[in-house]
Structure formats: C-alpha cells, structure tokens
Amino acid sequence: MSLFGRQSKRDLHSLAAPYALDALEPHERARFEKHLRTCDRCTAEVRALSEDAVRLAWSTAAPAPLAMRDRVLAAVRNTPQEASPLGAAPPRPHHLPAHVWGTEPPPPRRRAPRMRPLFAPLATATAAAALVVASLFAVQATRTQDQLDTARAQSREIANILAAPDARATNERDARGRGIGVIASAKEGRAIVTLSGLGDLPSGRVHQLWLMRPDVQPRSLGLFQGDTPLVTSGMNDDATSLAVTVEPNGGSAQPTSQPIAQLALKSVGFGE
C-alpha cells in the first residue's frame, strides 16, 4: 500500500512538464491541480516549466487582424466583469443561438480559467456580437411572459442578423455615459440597436431612432420601448450614422430636437 502510494505520488510529480505544456487529459489535469495545492515543490517546478513553455509562445507572435480590435473593445464595453454585481449568471435562455456563449461565468478556478469548449458551427457571429446579445438577455431575464415572448420573437431576428457573414458590432458612449450599441449586417441592411445611460423620459415622450445619410433627411427607424433593443431592417448601405432624439409619444416624421446620442456606422461596414 505504501509502495503504491509512493509510486502514485512519483507519477504525479512526473506530470509537471506535461502539465506545463497543457498536454494532460482533463481528468489528469484535474488530479494534478488537486495535487499541486499540497505540493510546494511541484508548484515551484510547474511555475518554472510554465515560464519555459511561455517562451515558446512568444516566438509565435503575429499581428492580430485589425478588425478584431474593434470587436473586442466593443464587446468589452458591453460585458460585465465577473467581480461586478452584474456578473451574476442570468438563467440561460433556451432560444439563444448555440454559439452565443458568455451567458454564465465559467466555474471558479484558481488560475488559467477555462470555459466550455465551443462545438457550435462558428465563423459567423462574432464573440462581440454574442456578448452584446447576452447582455440584452441578462436584462430580459427579469421580465414577464408577454415581454419574454416578444423578446423571443426578437431573438429570432437577432439570430438572423448574427448569422449574416458580415455581422459586426460597435458601441459608443459620450462622457456622460449615454450611448448607442449596434450589431449590424450592412449587406442585409439589418441591425439590432440598444441604448444605454439615457435615463428616464418625461411622461408622454419616447426615444426615436433615426438613420442618417448624406444629403438626405433623417429617416425614422422606429421607437424604443423601454430598454428593449430595436431590431430594424432596410438600412441603406450608404448610411453614415444613427441618432436618437426625444420625441412626443407616437414619434415624429422628422426630428424635432437635437440628438441626445449618435453612433457612426463606418466600423460596422456602412458608407463604404
């Protein structure tokens, strides 16, 4: 028994290098990590070997695609951090496309956290867009059935837009935190638009969304209902920006006040 015990411990020690190279199978990795908590020598060895492994990583550095930066930064603006109060996991909505991840934080780990691997067909929806949607549904999780039904219908629209090969996301906020977020497919002329930080409206007033194009009057894309995202189609590909104004209930044919938020559409593929 003691011999077996020692043997098994030595076996565990010998896993330090495969562990540093991420070359263990999941069950071995878990077993070794458990062992690490009680083995200072292994911890020191793993740390040194991991630093060596990381040297192998540096030599592979390559410039990331430029568009990735916009997507990641836009997603960051829409993504709560784990530690924040908003980081609590909303119930996973069943109607979200399978590739929309991030609706729940990964299980706590001491370091190098992993998330569930993704098996879904990929390629189309960006992580950024997925995260915008995930945050929308975090809000909607607290609503009534009627509202959820509406949201569900909308989520199909959203899934369609996410599935467009050219779907891209962007988001802008002014110094006072007022802003517009959009996930759009320029090719299909469709978009999901969200508002943030605009505050409460006086009674009898609504937020109206406008499409701005060069040398043309603004065109209404619809009225916001509370903080529900607005799904719109028929966006012209020469559109330059979106604008939001405060209008009387029912909306206006043309804006009757200055925009309180604006968002340029160039980074999501319009106006090119």
């Binding site: 960051v76 951090q81 991840w101 934080p105 998330m115 950024a128």
Partner: peptide
C-alpha cells in the same frame, strides 16, 4: 483569440 481577450476582461 477574441474569446481569450474577452476572458481577460471578464476574469
């Protein structure tokens, strides 16, 4: 890569 970078933000 995008997932990793967002994961940095979140965790």
């Amino acid at each position: 890569a995008q997932e990793v970078l967002l994961e940095l933000w979140r965790s």
